[in-house]
Amino acid sequence: MVRLITHNLLACHVKGCNTNNFPLEFRDVQIELREAEFNPEFLKGFMPKIEWKALVDAARQLGDTSLPLEQPEMLDDDFLKNLHHVLLEIHVEEGIMTCPNCKHDYPVLNGIPNMLLAEHEIG
């Protein structure tokens, strides 16, 4: 299950690919929605770790436009519920994540991101 919370932490790690290597871009994805228990404390605690623009862009690539472009200052319940859905309930089951810089493709298979590199690509 590649959830967007995980996607928001993954960067390209090909040898020498050090700039503009985050966030990875989704394409050809199959997604599943799975309900998760709403946990506002977790969301508030995790907010400082999120790269907001990367999250909003990834959600839009997956067809979800519920998040505002700017991270709001007031964390009301409606916002937190949308954030909960985007971060934790959208699962990318199959697809490809592409580095915006070097265009390396990382496949997602059975919900697991394959971030392995060939020997000559390892930094």
Partner: peptide, 16 residues
Amino acid sequence: ALDPINVTFAAPLSLR
């Protein structure tokens, strides 16, 4: 909820 990533060590996570 465990989030597995198929990779050596933590290379793609080290930036973030």
